[in-house]
């Protein structure tokens, strides 16, 4: 029981650490990431473009058939 309290302490401490990283960040919105914008400008065009679809999107497989 005390170990689970220890685990929950770790969960809370790490959660706080990431929110702290966000709260102190100069930029807090993904679409304002200049490096990401440069990637689109130089290379991928824009979200859901053909290059984006090919490199940044994927497909999934039905694995349940194999179980039945």
């Amino acid at each position: 029981r005390s170990a689970l309290i220890n685990r929950n302490h770790h969960i809370q401490a790490r959660t706080k650490g990431l929110y702290q990283d966000d709260a102190t960040a100069k930029i807090r919105l993904s679409h304002e990431n200049q490096a990401v914008m440069k990637l689109y400008k130089d290379f991928a065009g824009k979200p859901l473009s053909p290059v984006s679809e090919e490199l940044l999107h994927t497909k999934y497989v039905n694995r349940m058939k194999a179980l039945s």
Binding site: R14, L18, D21, D22, A25, L29, S30
Partner: peptide, 22 residues
């Protein structure tokens, strides 16, 4: 280079919050 929205992906709710902001 990353933003505050990217870093909170590691917390439950972080992906949704980042998506809602944008």
């Amino acid at each position: 280079e990353y933003t505050g929205a990217g870093t909170i992906f590691g917390n439950t709710g972080g992906v949704m919050e980042a998506a809602l902001r944008t």
